[in-house]
Amino acid sequence: MMLRRARPALAILLGSLIGACSPLTTFNRLVPKDRGGELVARDLSYGPDARQRLDVYAPQGECGAPRPVVVFFYGGSWNSGTRRGYAFVGRALAARGFVTVIPDYRLVPKVRYPAFVEDGAAAVRWATEHAGTYCGDKRSIVLMGHSAGAYIAAMLAVDQRWLGNTRAAVKGLVGLAGPYDFAPFDVEASRAAFGQVPDPADTQPVTFAGAGDPPAMLLYGATDTVVLPRNSEALAARLRAGGVAVDSRAYPKLGHVGIVLALARPFRGRAPVLDDVSTFVRRVTHGIIATSVDTGQNEP
């Protein structure tokens, strides 16, 4: 009963924190922790900058067969955010059996595009080199992100410029409410991050998506007014045109914040985001590629 009463307050808190692009450490202290997943390494360096640090979450228990690795990039308009604020994501995914890496990355205005994508690539390369230390399978990596983080994950998955040979380890892409087709830059955050690029199309995932890209799960809230659903729809269409398997799902009751909120224990009843993501990660890392799906709803 107490948890049920606390849910509205938690939702308001998280919504205000994400909306203000603030660290979510208070939320993490309030949300019940998932059993079976734990923080196993923190403040690990993948580059020389103070923002080039990451944390690792892993399933509890002894290591058996190597586990799939999820690299999660948080959002924040490319100008804010911290990995510590998304510990609830790391614990949730680790409890489902995945070694989960959550990196920080350099932010606007200190840097502009492509620095945050380059940092994402460096974090993925770190995962391929070090995941085995935590019982992770360096050959089975899924890139995942929310909002601006989904943009980073998508660029790494579809644009061959960033990962080089490491891209072969990427078995799938999970995007939550990602901006994939947002040129011209008509809001301050995108102008600040990308406005200096001579050809805006060169920054868009839809420009590069096509044949040979990893399978994708593109999830979004039907009521999202921050990153419009057409972004996911456009990327899904481009991937399908290239013969790539895409699972595209709209959750009727979720908005931009709600889709990541649904990964936290108190709010999973709103939509099966965690279940859907977990099923997708298991399938693609075991070589089971589902045919393209576009339910438009939160069906399994």
Score class of each variant (00 low, 15 high):
residue 271 A to D: 07
residue 274 L to Y: 06
residue 261 L to Y: 09
residue 261 L to C: 04
residue 283 R to P: 07
residue 264 A to D: 01
residue 275 D to C: 06
residue 286 H to P: 03
residue 276 D to V: 10
residue 267 F to N: 00
residue 269 G to E: 08
residue 261 L to D: 10
residue 270 R to A: 11
residue 280 F to M: 12
residue 265 R to Y: 01
residue 288 I to R: 14
residue 264 A to K: 00
residue 287 G to C: 08
residue 274 L to G: 02
residue 285 T to D: 04
residue 265 R to S: 05
residue 278 S to Y: 13
residue 272 P to E: 02
residue 278 S to H: 13
residue 288 I to K: 15
residue 266 P to Q: 10
residue 283 R to T: 11
residue 277 V to P: 08
residue 276 D to T: 08
residue 288 I to P: 05
residue 275 D to G: 12
residue 261 L to F: 11
residue 272 P to L: 02
residue 273 V to T: 03
residue 274 L to D: 03
residue 268 R to K: 14
residue 288 I to F: 14
residue 274 L to E: 06
residue 277 V to K: 05
residue 266 P to C: 09
residue 271 A to N: 05
residue 262 A to S: 10
residue 281 V to A: 13
residue 275 D to N: 14
residue 279 T to N: 14
residue 264 A to V: 01
residue 273 V to C: 00
residue 281 V to C: 14
residue 265 R to E: 01
residue 264 A to H: 02
residue 265 R to Q: 05
residue 265 R to G: 04
residue 269 G to T: 02
residue 272 P to I: 01
residue 279 T to I: 14
residue 272 P to V: 03
residue 263 L to E: 00
residue 287 G to P: 06
residue 263 L to F: 02
residue 272 P to F: 02
residue 289 I to K: 10
residue 267 F to V: 05
residue 262 A to G: 01
residue 273 V to K: 00
residue 288 I to G: 06
residue 288 I to C: 12
residue 276 D to W: 09
residue 290 A to P: 08
residue 281 V to W: 11
residue 282 R to V: 06
residue 288 I to L: 15
residue 284 V to Q: 10
residue 273 V to S: 00
residue 287 G to D: 03
residue 263 L to G: 00
residue 264 A to T: 03
residue 274 L to C: 03
residue 288 I to N: 11
residue 263 L to A: 01
residue 290 A to G: 14
residue 260 V to A: 08
residue 278 S to G: 14
residue 268 R to D: 07
residue 280 F to Q: 12
residue 271 A to R: 08
residue 260 V to Q: 10
residue 280 F to W: 08
residue 287 G to E: 02
residue 270 R to S: 09
residue 274 L to P: 06
residue 272 P to T: 04
residue 274 L to N: 08
residue 289 I to A: 09
residue 289 I to L: 15
residue 284 V to Y: 09
residue 285 T to I: 03
residue 269 G to H: 13
residue 273 V to I: 04
residue 282 R to I: 06
residue 284 V to E: 13
residue 263 L to V: 00
residue 285 T to Q: 03
residue 265 R to K: 05
residue 260 V to T: 14
residue 264 A to M: 03
residue 287 G to S: 10
residue 276 D to C: 11
residue 284 V to C: 12
residue 261 L to P: 07
residue 279 T to V: 15
residue 266 P to G: 04
residue 280 F to S: 07
residue 268 R to H: 12
residue 278 S to C: 14
residue 279 T to R: 15
residue 277 V to S: 06
residue 270 R to F: 07
residue 281 V to F: 13
residue 265 R to V: 08
residue 266 P to L: 11
residue 276 D to I: 05
residue 267 F to I: 03
residue 261 L to H: 10
residue 262 A to D: 01
residue 271 A to K: 05
residue 289 I to C: 14
residue 260 V to R: 08
residue 276 D to Y: 10
residue 281 V to K: 09
residue 282 R to W: 13
residue 284 V to N: 09
residue 285 T to P: 06
residue 285 T to E: 04
residue 284 V to K: 10
residue 273 V to E: 02
residue 288 I to D: 12
residue 285 T to N: 01
residue 261 L to K: 11
residue 268 R to Q: 14
residue 264 A to N: 02
residue 284 V to H: 12
residue 266 P to V: 04
residue 270 R to C: 01
residue 261 L to Q: 15
residue 262 A to P: 04
residue 265 R to L: 09
residue 270 R to K: 09
